[in-house]
């Protein structure tokens, strides 16, 4: 892991990886959305609104996965002082928050015709909303860090503590009598028919690759800002 601690080495890898992840991700995500929109059968009870699953589930996965990324990067930052870890955690925050918001909104849109409501305060929906607020808190703390590219320890600690919400989201449909149905895809298998499962997997893969590309772009921006910062300081000293 420390092989990539060197920003120069990281950039040598990140520069070609960014467009590769982006275009492959875009291809898969767009393909899965078209597949999902035009080539899946109508669902028994929900009818055509089942198609919303192809944007709702990937955004839920990335909203939660993003916070796990922040938590792991924050841990690496605090324990091993890895110079890129704080930058990575910070780069994940805005895409993660956006996906959490997309998840909440598409879920709300899906809930109206199927459940009969835009919103209920059940365990799953509430804990997902809390995740969105945690992202906002993290972004505020990280942006208040004193140095460019250097994420404060307060933000890192917040990132790690906030991770307790992830298992709560995951278990919420079991712990509380909830409006949201229980998990469809578990380690034991899936109760989603193959006709929906195949494009769903492609959508999750595609959006994940796009997420990776976005994080790399943001890390590269932060590293460049750091270089500008250092250069300006040197010029000021002369």
């Amino acid at each position: 892991m420390h092989r990539f601690a060197n920003p120069a080495r990281f950039l040598r890898l990140a520069r070609p990886l960014t467009p590769a992840l982006f275009w492959l991700g875009l291809l898969l995500a767009l393909g899965a959305c078209l597949w999902g929109l035009f080539a899946v059968p109508t669902e028994r009870l929900m009818g055509d609104t089942v198609k919303i699953i192809f944007v709702h589930v990937p955004s839920a996965w990335l909203g939660m996965g993003g916070w796990m990324g922040i938590a792991i990067a924050s841990l690496v930052q605090l324990v091993w002082r890895h110079p890129l870890a704080g930058i990575a955690a910070r780069a994940i925050a805005v895409p993660g928050a956006t996906f959490a918001a997309i998840c909440l909104m598409t879920g709300s849109i899906w809930g109206r015709p199927t459940w009969g409501t835009w919103w209920v305060w059940d365990g799953r929906l509430t804990s997902m909303l809390v995740l969105f607020f945690l992202y906002l808190g993290y972004i505020a703390l990280a942006n208040a860090s004193s140095e460019k590219g250097d994420t404060s320890r307060v933000a890192a600690v917040f990132g790690i503590i906030g991770a307790v919400n992830i298992p709560i989201i995951n278990r919420s449909v079991i712990w509380w009598e909830s409006q949201h149905q229980k998990a469809s895809i578990t380690l034991g298998g899936s109760s989603i028919d193959g006709a929906y499962l195949a494009p769903l997997f492609v959508a999750v893969a595609g959006f994940s690759l796009l997420f990776g590309a976005l994080v790399l772009m943001r890390m590269r921006a932060a590293l460049a800002e750091m270089r500008i910062d250092a250069r300006m300081r040197r010029m000021a000293d002369d």
Binding site: F22, A29, C33, L37, D48, T49, K51, I52, V55, H56, S59, V94, P95, T98, F99, A101, I102, M105, T106, I109, W110, R112, P113, L210, L214, M217, R218, R220, A221, A222, A224, E225, I228
Partner: peptide, 29 residues
């Protein structure tokens, strides 16, 4: 309308993320 709304929300979100991240990267680099 619900299907269109859900996919539009996702599209707008992705577009905003991509454009803002890309421009920030290009400008800084």
């Amino acid at each position: 309308p619900f299907i269109i709304a859900a996919f539009s929300v996702t599209g707008v979100g992705m577009l905003w993320l991509t454009v803002s991240s890309y421009l920030a990267m290009r400008r800084s680099e």
